[in-house]
């Protein structure tokens, strides 16, 4: 599938392929929305993670021009949010607002939105049904949105946001209210869209889901960006918390004795089923190199996996007990 509006001649200037926040702050009177946010979001799936009031929705509303920054500037693939005519041909936004124009069916909702682009009836019909098929809502498309379940409303909003084939998708809590099957289908759709070279910017508070789907994360707390980048990269930068590695092997006690000879290992704990060992180390790379030598000495290692290389742990380490996700 081609990505609409993409330059055909030569590589675009770097800014034209990024979502850029430059020292952006937004205050609601005395209340802080987000503060001094500087980000460059590349294509792929990017998750905004944070508890209620951390600034996720504000960041998304800033990106889409629904609110204006008090300070700083934003560029979406080189376009400012003050220019809705250009911006919304590049960008689709599925908001968390759960209200719809009254009296419309699902297909009319998507169709009416597309008509606002000034596109012809036939083209709008075609695009609307294509998007509805993509979110797997064809059967319910001719029913009134007012009678939809939460999950169906989420999907019709998603259809609306992808119907015009945007290069940037901004999705506020898009997996909320979806049953497991639809959730899996929707995640697959995000991956498909990201694989096509689009930006898929998702907010979520379900951390294991973020782990599953994200190419990169932006962790937010109290209006500040506390970390950004690939999850593993963010994790390795948190030096005050040793990395945890779970090793499944046939002789965990022997392995414990061997690994304790290493300076970088600060803790080794037998797994409850006695079939493995949980190691805490300050230098994961060195530990993995060493593990190869240990394995040569009669200890059969079944598997080695990082135990806290996920958003949940990263979030816990960075934001700690001061707040929890909703």
């Amino acid at each position: 599938m081609s990505v609409s509006g993409q330059e055909k001649t030569g590589p675009p200037p770097i800014e034209q392929s990024l979502v850029v926040f430059d020292n952006v702050s937004r205050f609601y009177g005395e209340v802080l929305g987000v503060n001094r946010v500087t980000l460059s979001i590349p294509p792929g799936i990017t998750s905004l993670v944070g508890p209620n009031g951390s600034g996720k929705t504000t960041l998304m509303n800033l990106m889409t021009g629904l609110v204006r920054p008090t300070r700083g500037s934003i560029r979406i693939l080189g376009v400012t949010p003050d220019d809705p005519e250009k911006l919304f041909r590049l960008l689709g936004y599925s908001t968390q607002f759960d209200s719809f124009p009254k009296g419309l069916t699902g297909s009319q909702f998507v169709y009416s939105f597309l008509r606002l682009f000034g596109t012809s009836h036939a083209e709008c019909e075609k695009q609307a049904w294509k998007a509805i098929e993509r979110v797997n809502l064809v059967d319910a498309a001719n029913r009134k949105v007012a009678g939809y379940s939460k999950g169906m409303r989420q999907r019709i909003k998603l259809a609306q946001s992808i119907a015009h084939d945007p290069r940037v998708l901004v999705l506020d809590e898009p997996l909320n209210g979806l049953d497991p099957l639809v959730r899996a289908e929707t995640i697959a759709l995000f991956r498909e869209l990201a694989a096509e070279g689009r930006h898929v910017i998702v907010s979520s508070h379900i951390l294991h889901e973020v782990d599953m789907i994200s190419d990169q994360v932006i962790l937010l707390s109290n209006g500040y960006v506390v970390a950004e980048g690939k999850i593993s990269g963010v994790r390795s930068e948190i030096s005050e918390h040793p990395m945890q590695v779970l090793i499944r092997c046939n002789k965990p006690e022997a392995l414990a004795a061997r690994v304790f000879e290493q300076d970088s290992v600060v803790e080794a704990r037998l797994h409850a089923d006695k079939g493995g060992l949980l190691i805490k180390t300050r230098d994961a790379d060195r530990f993995y190199r060493l593990l190869n030598q240990i394995a040569l000495n009669g200890i059969e290692i079944e598997s080695v996996a990082p135990a806290d290389d996920n958003v949940n742990s990263v979030y816990e380490y960075l934001i700690g007990g001061e707040e929890s996700t909703k």
Binding site: P84, F88, R89, T95, D98, K102, F113, L116
Partner: peptide
């Protein structure tokens, strides 16, 4: 008041 104005503001239409 109905929280539905964003429907229009998310389209490429001049205000």
């Amino acid at each position: 008041i109905d929280k539905s104005l964003h429907f229009y503001l998310l389209a490429p239409i001049r205000r």
